[in-house]
């Protein structure tokens, strides 16, 4: 049962990883506009990136 003392902080670490990933994505503006990327996706196919 004492395993829980190891597992619980571990699960929290994983959660912290997820949350920090979300906060990074949020800070870099990935959630600011949820509509335009769907359109953008359709267009860049035959364009070569510079």
């Amino acid at each position: 049962m004492d395993l829980v003392f190891f597992l619980l902080p571990l699960s929290l670490l994983l959660a912290a990883f997820g949350v920090s990933a979300f906060i990074w994505a949020n800070r870099s503006g990935q959630f600011d506009d949820l509509d335009t990327p769907a359109h953008r996706l359709l267009l860049d196919d035959d364009e070569q990136k510079k």
């Binding site: 600011d32 506009d33 509509d35 335009t36 359109h39 953008r40 359709l42 267009l43």
Partner: peptide, 28 residues
């Protein structure tokens, strides 16, 4: 109006020297 507008406007760096990037928000 549409995706073509986004495409055209985001080509601004190629039309106008000195522009680094252009991002359009369609709904706004």
């Amino acid at each position: 109006h549409c995706a073509s507008c986004v495409w055209l406007l985001e080509k601004l760096p190629e039309i106008c020297d000195g522009v680094v990037s252009a991002r359009v928000r369609l709904t706004h």
